[in-house]
Design a binder for these strands. Structure first.
Lengths: 121, 121
DNA sequence: CCGAATCCGGTTGGATACTG
DNA sequence: CAGTATCCAACCGGATTCGG
């Protein structure tokens, strides 16, 4: 039920988190923000992503208008993905979170270590 | 492998997304930002959350130093949760994302509808 | 080269029942 | 009141295979 109920309320922040909360979307977004990229090129650089998840993630991004998909008429055909303007603006919003993450990561790690230690009494 | 590999790289943004990417953390964070709250009070207001997930989520938040857990010496004992300073700052970062979500949600919905329609040809 | 379809093991999280 | 423990169904995503 967790995934069905996600869209149960009309909560915009949930929409975004459902998109970027998974393991790969943010990585792909970051990679594409460095410039357009083809499928297998992405696959090599994202490192560890399966073909399936790359396809699924890109399709979702395209569906939300965050990424464009352009088929190049080469032989064999190639497909180039690029951020839309909306995608760029999302990336900027994510950067805020990323900044927070970097600024607080050592403190958070310390808190976790302390917490785990206290539990191991 | 997706969950084991999450922490594989030392990527701070992943740390944050692993925390707030789930269904409940953000909702609880938002609720606590309105003031301290007890367990069952949270449970009532968050609406739809199971007892188990509320406990798990709160424990994770506490572990990261985002939330404090204070046992009140009443009878029966009550437990009050509140945001830490760090929790407040995270909420601020999330607000940026939330603003983006609100600003773009109608466009995104439109994109999705258009995409789905094009697929149903 | 790009992707969809199928299969299937591991994780997630709800329901329920039980403690301090 | 505030959790923990157990059980189990649903989902997610990797591996593999096949199509355009």
């Amino acid at each position: 039920m967790p995934n069905n109920r996600k869209q149960e309320y009309d909560c915009p922040i949930r929409d975004v988190l459902d998109r970027i909360g998974d393991a790969w979307t943010v990585l792909i977004l970051m990679e594409l923000s460095r410039g357009a990229c083809r499928f297998n090129a992405l696959r090599r650089v994202v490192d560890g992503i399966s073909q399936r998840m790359l396809a699924v993630t890109l399709r979702n991004l395209e569906r939300d208008g965050l990424v464009t998909r352009q088929v190049l008429e080469t032989s064999p055909p190639q497909v180039e993905y690029a951020l839309t303007q909306r995608g760029v603006s999302l990336r900027a919003a994510i950067d805020t979170l990323s900044d927070w993450a970097q600024a607080n990561q050592t403190d958070i790690r310390a808190s976790r270590a302390e917490y785990d230690l206290a539990k191991a009494d």
